[in-house]
Design a protein around this nucleic acid. Structure first.
Lengths: 356, 356
DNA sequence: ATGAAAGCGCTAACAT
DNA sequence: ATGTTAGCGCTTTCAT
């Protein structure tokens, strides 16, 4: 197999019998080319299978039309969906995208962030690994950055996230109204802004219900152990609310393993929707995040910056949908006549809002 | 916000008081630079936050160190995992990756394939949308291409896939041994090589059991209708085997909607493992594909080609694991004493093999 | 060991 | 309307 070279603009020019400038003009749709020349160029392009060299083109024209995307983990369906939507939007705007995953590792994120600069992107969309993102951004990063999903410790970035607090609060209020007296809230770590906001939301909204937070960390094995200890301890809380995808999976499996049935022994709700949640019986009550919309807003914010808009960093929050299912029924243990609310389906909807 | 330029090698050279050639030599680890100069250069690099411009570097050095990856759909967890593994491997080999999704659309795939040439990748790993892939590859594509997961109609590519036939056959044999007399096999379309191979595998391995193929296409709404029609028709088959992820989801929901219980009314098995399959009760019997290994092999094959290895296209097949769960119990309707086999857990494992 | 200069493929300014 | 030429940021001879 002989490794051939890609044809260059020079070869196209020679074959069409014109100058390279004319080829470039045809390719870039400059209106000053005669139809005859244009045809000859297009023929040559087709015959050679010529495609412009983006690297060279960008180098010379100083036009970027390239954005970078950094996510914590591509195998997380939420982030995959985020990236997929961005890809679509970028294509519509005739931008290229360089996508990298930090593989859930802050060091690797720092490395990717450094490396991605080598592509000279016109802008960056990042879902940071954790709040310390700003420290990992190489200083003197010259392109605009839009952060999504997770809130960094440091200000100064355009930001798009969901309304973690109110949404988690809606679940807590629901459990409250269903008559549960205590709720175990489980999440990886309060050092992650999302988890912190959700926990605060729960605390603010649980009127009658006692709430208790359990941080299980990122290590699944250790987390499962902590969780199992708590679930074997008595009294067992009436309800369990898990604050992120990984924790939900771990929790659901752990409960099954130690023989706790949902909702017979314990009610169960989750932040983050997964497809199996409507397949199991009963279905799991969840908060569904508007991932596509988050991607759209992130792209809109970045595009604004890349096309030169200045001004103070913007923060936008999107509303989530709360999906009430069978895993959080009216508390059967509750004393009769105590609370009489508890609808079957809520939906927080309406325009996204900007807190400031 | 003043949009600053990224620093150039020239600025580094000026600041360090050396020539650009020396800076380049330091950056590329050439051994001929004196320690003193190297230090001055490194200091300047750090102070300016300089990162090489990959576009310019690649243009001049004619070194690629860049591979393209095209998958049908990033939101499919299997493909996401494939990409994530590739990303890791590429990084280890100091390659960059350009990842694009065809968004389940052959036209878009063709477009991305054309577009990705502009990056001048040294090679391509593609999971094609369908068998007609070769027609969509621009002629005169100058880089080596490795195809994964799906087999194209035309030969001439390095190929890595799973042993669809034997694995699907193992499920069919299992159902057979469990005493089911007829099995409805459901998949999107036999025009997709995977589905075709799986169906052939089923046909070859079902000894006593009658098998029937239902193609439901890629349009979910229409597919659900076809499936519902068949499932309302009597006699209902004793077992259902769904051949791909999308179909499995659709099938499982449709069965639930029309009130068929698994395995009470019908046994159920699926090709492709999803996380919820061990969470529902009973668990779903599945074939689990070795996605990571497929990515590793794909990368190994491509790397071989990119580093100049010639020779005939290679085809490799990987073994899948068959996971027997509660959704395919011994057939309760079966006449006593007819068949007495049916173990609880199979695993096809061992070295991957190459059929030729 | 270091620097000057050429040139990768392309676009843009300018000349014709 | 077309061609000529300079030069984007970098690496690589080739002098020194």
């Amino acid at each position: 197999m002989s490794r051939q070279q890609s044809p260059s603009i020079k070869m196209v020019a020679d074959r069409a019998g014109v100058s390279v400038a004319t080829v470039s003009n045809v390719l870039n749709g400059k209106p000053t080319v005669s139809p005859d020349f244009a045809r000859r160029v297009n023929d040559a392009v087709r015959e050679l299978g010529y495609v412009v060299d983006l690297g060279a083109s960008r180098l010379r024209s100083r036009k970027a039309q390239l954005a970078g995307v950094v996510v914590p983990d591509l195998t997380n369906p939420m982030f995959a969906s985020f990236v997929s939507t961005l890809e679509h939007l970028a294509r519509l705007a005739d931008y290229d995208l360089v996508v990298v995953s930090a593989r859930n590792n802050a060091e690797e994120e720092a490395d990717r962030l450094r490396k991605i600069r080598a592509w000279r992107p016109a802008g960056l969309i990042v879902i940071p690994c954790d709040g310390a993102f700003a420290e990992r951004l190489p200083d003197g990063f010259f392109a605009p950055v839009v952060l999504a999903d997770r809130i960094p410790d440091a200000a100064g970035f355009d930001l798009i996230a969901v309304d973690n607090g109110p949404s988690a609060g809606a679940i807590a209020a629901h459990l409250d109204q269903q008559g549960y007296e205590d709720c175990l809230v489980v999440g990886t770590s309060l050092s992650i802004s999302n988890i912190r906001e959700r926990w605060e939301g729960v605390r603010a909204s649980a009127k009658h219900m006692r709430v208790e937070m359990l941080e299980i960390g990122i290590d699944d094995a250790h987390g499962a152990q902590l969780l199992e200890e708590r679930l074997r301890h008595r009294p067992l809380p009436g309800a369990l609310f898990s604050l992120d995808q990984g924790t939900t999976l771990l929790t659901y499996c752990t409960m099954a393993e130690i023989g706790l049935s949902v909702p017979g022994d314990i009610a169960f709700a989750s932040f983050d929707e997964m497809e199996w949640m409507r397949l199991v019986t009963p279905g799991i009550t969840t908060v569904r995040q508007p991932v596509e919309e988050m991607a759209e807003q992130a792209w809109a914010l970045l595009l604004r910056r890349m096309t030169g808009s200045a001004g103070k960093p913007v923060t936008r929050r999107l509303r989530c949908a709360v999906e009430i299912r069978g895993s959080t029924p009216r508390n059967p243990l509750e004393e009769a006549g105590k609370l009489k609310l508890g609808g079957r389906k809520w939906k927080l909807q309406g325009e996204p809002y900007s807190p400031e």
